[in-house]
C-alpha cells in the first residue's frame, strides 16, 4: 500500500511548474487587460486590478489551508480500498453509499474518471456510478474546502451542500430507470471479467 501511495504522491511533482496552462492564464489576463483599456479606458482597468488584488490577499491564507486539508484527505481516503465496496452494493443503500464515496473522493477528473471506469468494470451498477460521479462533482469535499469555503463563505456553502445532498441519489435512481428503458448500457468487455459476471445488475 505504501509503495502505491508513494507513486501517487510523487506524480504531481513530475509535472513542470511552467506549462501550457500557465501560459494560457497569462495570455488570458493580457488579452482581458488590453480589451478593458481599449473598450473602457484605463480607469476601469485600475478598478479591475484592485478588485483582483484585494480578492487575492483575502483568499490566499484560506486557499493555502484548504490545500493542506485536501492533501490530508488524499491520505485518509484511498480509492483502491473504496472501489470493491461500491462494486458489491446495490439498491437504495448502494446509491447512498456511492454518493458518500463520491463526496470524499479527492482529485480532479484526471484522477476520478479512471476510478469511475474501474468501478463500472468491476460490476458497480450504472446508477451507483452516476450517483458517485454526481456526488463527486457537486459535493466533493476537497473542492468545497479548497475553493468554495474560502471564496463563497460558510453560509453559502452550508445551504448549498445541505440541499444538494439528496440530488446524487435521485440522479442515480433516475439513471437506473432510464437504463432499463431506451438507454440500456452494455458493460464494456474487459479481460473476461464482465463476461464472467454476466448482465446481472439490471
Amino acid at each position: 500500500m505504501s509503495a502505491t501511495r508513494e507513486v501517487t504522491a510523487k506524480k504531481p511533482a513530475a509535472r513542470p511548474l511552467v506549462d501550457g496552462s500557465l501560459i494560457f492564464f497569462i495570455a488570458l489576463a493580457a488579452v482581458a487587460m488590453v480589451l478593458v483599456v481599449w473598450i473602457k479606458g484605463p480607469g476601469p482597468l485600475t478598478v479591475a486590478l484592485s478588485h483582483a488584488s484585494g480578492l487575492m490577499v483575502s483568499i490566499a491564507p484560506l486557499i493555502a489551508l484548504g490545500l493542506l486539508l485536501g492533501g490530508l484527505a488524499r491520505e485518509l481516503a484511498d480509492p483502491k480500498q473504496i472501489a470493491p465496496i461500491l462494486g458489491a452494493q446495490s439498491g437504495w443503500a448502494g446509491l447512498v453509499l456511492a454518493t458518500a464515496l463520491g463526496a470524499v473522493t479527492p482529485g480532479g477528473p484526471f484522477a476520478a474518471f479512471p476510478i469511475v471506469y474501474a468501478l463500472f468494470l468491476a460490476g458497480a451498477d450504472v446508477g451507483a456510478v452516476i450517483a458517485f460521479l454526481t456526488a463527486w462533482s457537486i459535493i466533493g469535499i476537497q473542492r468545497i474546502v479548497t475553493w468554495e469555503l474560502p471564496l463563497l463563505g460558510h453560509e453559502f456553502v452550508f445551504v448549498r451542500v445541505i440541499t444538494s445532498l439528496p440530488l446524487p441519489i435521485i440522479a442515480g435512481a433516475l439513471a437506473r430507470l432510464l437504463a432499463r428503458g431506451p438507454l440500456a448500457i452494455d458493460r464494456p468487455e474487459y479481460q473476461g471479467a464482465a463476461a464472467a459476471r454476466g448482465k446481472d445488475s439490471t
Binding site: L22, F25, I26, L28, A29, V31, A32, M33, L35, V36, L45, A48, L49, H51, A52, L55, M56
Partner: peptide, 9 residues
C-alpha cells in the same frame, strides 16, 4: 493571480 485579473477584467 492571472486568472483573477482576467476574471476581474
Amino acid at each position: 493571480p492571472f486568472s483573477l485579473v482576467a476574471a476581474s477584467c
